[in-house]
Each structure stands twice: as C-alpha cells, then as structure tokens.
C-alpha cells in the first residue's frame, strides 16, 4: 500500500467539502443545510491538522480549535434562527421561506 501523504488528507477534505456543498445546494430542509455546513467546517479542519502535522508546527491545531469554536457559535445562532422561523412560519423548508424575497 502507498504511504499516507498530505495529498491523501487533501483529497479526503476535498471529498467531504464537495459533499457538504452538494448538501447545501440540493437539500430543502434548513436543518440539513446547517448539518452540511458543519461538514464543510470539518473538511477545513482536516486540512489544518494535516498541514500542522506536515510542517511540525502546532499553530494549525490552534486554528482548528478556533474553527471549532466558530462552528459551535454558528450552530447555536443558526438553530436559534430556525426555532424563531418555525415559530413564525411553521416550516423548515427553505423553499417556503421567502420573507425577504423581492
């Protein structure tokens, strides 16, 4: 078997990122869109940790922690918005949420 290189981690990250983007673009449920965004955050984290490992510099892991914190904040605010939205419109379907459509 070939040795595992940064490129392998890059490809894994690329695959997860692409799957996340497809989820954001194709799904209609707002909760699943948020879940896909979490997947994208994770794809970014793989890159940070892999390069931190390759360059033997621990800063990459520190930045991954920052990304995790940002993702947690995003999830909290996003789910709060979804709850407020559901209270007003009784739906989690992104197609039916057109309050700001011009």
């Amino acid at each position: 078997m070939p040795p595992v290189t940064p490129v392998h981690y890059l490809f894994l990250s690329m695959a997860l990122f692409t799957i996340g983007v497809i989820g954001v673009l194709t799904r209609r449920n707002v909760i699943i869109i948020l879940i896909s965004i979490e997947l994208i955050f994770n794809a970014v984290n793989i890159n940070l940790v892999a390069f931190s490992s390759q360059f033997a510099s621990i800063s990459g892991q520190t930045f991954a922690i920052f990304v995790i914190v940002a993702a947690a904040a995003e999830a909290a605010v996003g789910l709060g918005i979804i709850i407020a939205l559901f209270r007003n419109k009784e739906t989690v379907n992104a197609d039916e949420i057109d309050l700001m459509k011009w």
Binding site: I31, E38, V49, A64, A72, I82
Partner: peptide
C-alpha cells in the same frame, strides 16, 4: 493518527457531544 490528541478529544466532546445534541434536540423540538 495525525498526532493531534487534544483536537481529537475536543472533536468528540464539542462536535459529537455538544453540537450534535443541540441539533438532535432542535430536530425533536420541531
């Protein structure tokens, strides 16, 4: 496997623990 033990534990506690509980809770709620 990349040697980032702290991050692995944070990943499990924060993501698989806290954030996912939040998600599951909201899905149940709605």
């Amino acid at each position: 496997m990349l040697g980032a033990e702290f991050l692995a534990v944070v990943q499990v506690i924060v993501y698989a623990g806290a954030v996912m509980v939040l998600f599951v809770f909201v899905i149940m709620l709605l």
